[in-house]
Design a protein around this nucleic acid. Structure first.
Lengths: 293, 293
DNA sequence: TTTTCATATAAGCTCTCCTTATAACCGTTG
DNA sequence: CAACGGTTATAAGGAGAGCTTATATGAAAA
């Protein structure tokens, strides 16, 4: 690079208008400044770029050759700036989310719909994985946000709670419910629980383990919805998330068991890397969740 | 354009080296300057471009998007500068010459050969035309240099004499030559001359017209070489350029008539536009002619 | 001629951008 | 643990690039 890039800006405008004075107006500087710029540029490149003639100026052959390149350079820069502008205004870009099935279905879905209506040009990418997996996806840069069951220990992440959830034990409509169940009572019932590797199951196991109770489910399933279905047809007693089952509870397809003391509340959290800044789309999506919830 | 182009230069180097301090060294400025530049750029664009982390820095997604564009912009500029450099060093470009057949054959040819040996990468373009036509070609920008018979009146051109030439009357070897010919004598001979529109013919006609002598050739030809051939086989007496016929004169294929007074010397000139600067190739070609002649 | 519209030049000032110096932060190492 | 060697950030002040204004110059138009 033999000269200041800014000179090329002046060169470009000047060449476009074939006039020093017009370019000066366009660039909001004096004609003298243009003249000096071009002289400097010509000196730096060792090439005469303009023919100064009575009526304005014109490009020399060398000037024409240079102009083609400068034109495409400036156009590239402008393209770049326009792309960033679009990103900022959410007119392009992508929202990449990592989350498990349950959270996606029962929590994210409505926000995703809302987001897509507001910003139809943002491509949405969903990556399904188990809790631990979602964080990995973010670490690897394959997702911007991960939605996970809290709490999670990882100081590379900021994790903001998005939704309080309550785990409850439920049974089918014909099940005869006692007035109250201790944790030990529940452990004796025929349980339908999630598979061992799910974080909800871990949470539950750990709670009961603290009281030296071990849970031995009769049925293990992989999907939250199946917990509800199986309970509702009296295959046993499920532990489900109350907020994800409001419909079924209201319709009486399943009934809550009065647990005493109830299971502690936990949170769904939104996790993102501490160090990397969030994409505009991701920021806006979090904003939307926090506002609408 | 939202920011100074020079900032992009800094951005580019910084992104290339993924380090403020390395870029600083590379650009021969302080690390602090880089830091400030990038901050200003980020502020101007309203976008974070780098993730500052313990070990150096890395591009954000926005930064990556921008980088692609800036890279191609800078590469375009560098290409342009390289092209100009090549032109300056005569490693590319073209030499466009307009001239008549005679001048080309008898005068330019040896210089063109020489030039092509010295600068094999310069494309040579020859445009053949009559004297007036050559100047038009230059005016229209279709040629850089025109070689013409002088004198010529046109104040748009600079015309530099390149070669003195002498017009002489010649006859075949068997022709009986008197000791001296007056202009009137010559006019009585059976003449072989160029066609009316050639500038050499004009020159001759005008000279004789000044002395109220009109020339009425028996034979008109279009090409200088034919003047020689026809004279040499005794079809008449030709008026030719001595410098273009040295071989034939030396070999005795034709003989000079002693004219008294002799025809005045004239010049072949090299013409180029006053206002437009000459291409490097054209400048060099003129230089070569002036040196070698 | 004079006027008008170009660009070029001169001189001086302003404000951008750089430098120096220092801070803050992190990881490594003695 | 403290010191060091490596980042980048910040503060403050100074240099000079690049601007402005004013004027010159030159060619065409009036």
């Amino acid at each position: 690079m033999k000269t200041k890039l800014d000179y090329y800006r002046v060169f470009y405008e000047t060449a476009c208008f074939r006039s020093f004075s017009t370019a000066a107006q366009r660039l909001y500087i004096s004609q003298s400044a243009i003249s000096q710029c071009i002289q400097q540029l010509e000196k730096d490149l060792g090439v005469q770029l303009f023919v100064r003639t009575r009526k304005g100026i014109s490009l020399t052959n060398e000037g024409k050759i240079l102009f083609l390149k400068v034109e495409s350079a400036i156009s590239a820069i402008e393209q770049g700036e326009r792309q960033l502008e679009q990103l900022r205004h959410l007119e392009s870009g992508e929202l990449r989310i990592a989350a498990g099935d349950t959270i996606t279905t029962h929590f994210l879905l409505k926000y995703l719909e809302e987001f897509h209506v507001s910003y139809p040009d943002i491509r949405i990418e969903m990556a399904n994985s188990y809790s631990a997996g979602t964080l990995s996806l973010v670490k690897e840069g394959k997702a911007d946000l991960a939605f996970v069951n809290m709490p999670i220990e990882d100081d590379e992440f900021v994790i903001e709670p998005c939704l309080e959830i309550n785990d409850v034990f439920v049974c089918g409509p014909d099940f005869e419910i006692k007035s109250s169940y201790s944790w030990e009572d529940v452990a004796e019932l025929p349980l339908i629980l999630l598979e061992n590797h799910s974080s909800s199951r871990h949470f539950l196991d750990d709670l009961f383990a603290e009281k030296n109770i071990s849970l031995d489910p009769q049925i293990k399933v992989a999907v939250h919805d199946l917990l509800i279905r199986f309970a509702s047809i009296h295959l046993g007693v499920s532990c489900i998330v109350e907020q994800f089952s409001t419909d079924e509870l209201k319709k009486g397809l399943i009934k809550k068991l009065p647990l005493s003391p109830p299971l502690p509340t936990r949170n769904i959290g939104c996790a993102y890397l501490k160090n990397a800044p969030l994409s505009y789309a991701a920021k806006e999506f979090m904003e939307l969740i926090m506002t609408l919830r």
